[in-house]
Design a protein around this nucleic acid. Structure first.
Lengths: 338, 338
DNA sequence: CTGAAAGCGCTTACAG
DNA sequence: CTGAAAGCGCTTACAG
């Protein structure tokens, strides 16, 4: 029962190879009787056509390439899980490639995927990606490109993202309403739109409630990891900056800062309230549990896949492809750190 | 410069398609001069042959399928990252499929991958996999199979694992040497070899130091997650079982138990020392930081890939394929919870 | 050393 | 409705 081909089915059923292929693909120009015979037999021997051979004619590999910046990040593995599941349900398989936050690796991966003739590429930008020539290349090649999470507005393709500005506004406003007056912010690196937007959201909330913006309270964390959070907290303590709250652009940074504050005798949340960003698994395992902004990876994954399928359908129907941008809602998860 | 084929190169250089193909593959029966011309030109136009078309002749897809039980688990995403990187360096791309700990999904994924004609399948068993017919199917199809982490001894294939028995012994012995007398154990489910082995390691350590084994102190955690750890701790407190240490078969379970103990006024490690298993990222983010057994995912990934490449070489040389089992060393990471 | 030719397994325009 | 045939892009045994 292994490595059957159309020819085997054809000779077993005493019909032509063409008839088998057409039956399997539900083409109209084949008698219902033949079609059913073929389909029944194919099913009984568990046959399905070799997709590599089919590619030579159809130009479809039924392969999707997904580039994430870090596989080990809970947020991305959640998105990936959903994409893979949805892809498989629709007959696609997913090739995964991590860019490790490097544009160079990102470029290399794209070249590799294009060469493998994947049907679509889903991608979240590396933090240091500032020019988008390699992305335009994807679009020009005719391969569907869907950007998610860390996106660029200037690339002509569909996108799935959260409203980072609004989410950060919400988190900061929440702290203000808790009575906090001096709120520090650990922001991400300077380039990505997403860390700019979170920073803007933070600033807007301060403005709205007439709290003076103090640039000294903003820390740029290039990797937004726990070490940088720890260091920022250390600086805050050393100055001393006398803050009563911290909004960090990532959960890891928030946790790193929390550790430092605790180690130095500050009580979280009584002395300093902390809010993170992403709702990674780890945020529900710390002491105290971390208040954070939930970014639903599963919803993002589903939306990405839905956009892709829509584009594929449009391609097949030879319609013009409409790019869409989907914004996924976030919510604040209140726990113990605030 | 896109979608070039052998023919384009051949006509540009005024030689035959065969000559081009042979030059690119460094075949001996082509003059060095021609070979160099072709290679230089191919490089200048960034050409590389279409792998789907090549498959039809070579039967190689340069695709590897990896099935892990849970993508969102730090340990697996670490292994995956390494495998993907090593694969790419060797011209392979990786299709990722999570089994979500279900044999049924595992079986379905294997069928899908076999049908896609991947060159190899790397797999860690779902927790409830007890028969291995579907794995033998892989072996019979001629596709290389490498088992890692949660393996089965009876499948004839190469394997990469840690010495779970020894690692658990080491963790338990460490607690005993710290003066602990009543050590509870949160074990994994009953079927997988790996959770059996960790349990045996725990028991052996008790035996060696003449501590009576008390079955009441062993809790079966089917999902070895934080909820089960919390529940086990709750039972320990309610009985009360009066333990002075806990060795859990996973970091999450250890953390769940730690939360419960803390919430009930026990001090970790003073009242109860806790040791986890895996050294997930999260174990260095809790309060207190978790002592645990490090399972090096990157080393495991590298070994898996090395075994695969070895088998591919043997296949090409038409040698008999030798299955190997590689055991990767673990170490105890002492932190604050013990 | 070179190239013409067969063939991998499929899809699809075409003739009947 | 049916099937013979071309062709997708490659590799490789074969003849020269």
């Amino acid at each position: 029962m292994k490595n059957l081909k159309l020819k085997d089915i054809a000779s077993a059923l005493n019909i032509s190879i063409a008839a088998v292929s057409k039956s399997l693909k539900n083409y109209p120009d084949v008698s219902p009787k033949t079609r059913e015979r073929v389909r029944a037999y194919a099913k009984s021997v568990n046959f399905s056509p070799n997709s590599q051979a089919a590619f030579l004619r159809t130009r479809e590999t039924k392969l999707i390439g997904v580039i994430v910046s870090q596989l080990t990040h809970y947020f991305f593995s959640t998105i990936l899980s959903t994409i893979i599941e949805e892809a498989e349900a629709n007959g696609y398989l997913v090739i995964v490639l991590p860019s490790e936050e490097s544009v160079e690796i990102e470029k290399k991966h794209i070249a590799t995927l294009l060469q493998k003739h994947v049907d679509g590429i889903f991608l979240t930008l590396a933090k240091d990606t500032y020019d988008f020539e390699h992305l335009n290349q994807i679009v020009e090649s005719g391969t569907s490109l869907i950007l998610f999470d860390n996106i660029s507005k200037v690339v002509p393709c569909s996108k799935v993202l959260i409203d980072d500005r609004q989410a950060a506004f919400m988190a900061t406003e929440y702290l203000i309403k808790k009575g906090k007056k001096r709120i520090a912010h650990c922001r991400g690196p300077l380039i990505p739109q997403l860390s700019i937007d979170r920073f803007i959201g933070y600033k807007r909330a301060l403005e709205k409630y007439h709290i003076e913006y103090d640039p000294e309270l903003v820390f740029v964390c290039d990797k937004i990891n726990e070490e940088e959070g720890y260091e920022a907290a250390q600086k805050i303590i050393d100055m001393p900056l006398e803050i009563d709250a911290l909004f960090a652009a990532s959960d890891l940074t928030a946790i790193g800062a929390m550790h430092c504050f605790q180690k130095n005798g500050f009580h979280v949340p009584k002395d300093i309230a902390i809010v993170g960003f992403s709702n990674w698994k780890v945020s529900s395992l710390t002491t105290p549990l971390l208040t954070t902004v939930d970014q639903p990876g599963d919803v993002i994954g589903k939306e990405v896949m839905a956009l892709f399928l829509k584009e594929q359908a449009q391609k097949k129907a030879k319609e013009t492809i409409e790019h869409q941008t989907v914004t996924v809602p976030t919510k604040l998860i209140e726990r113990e750190s605030s």
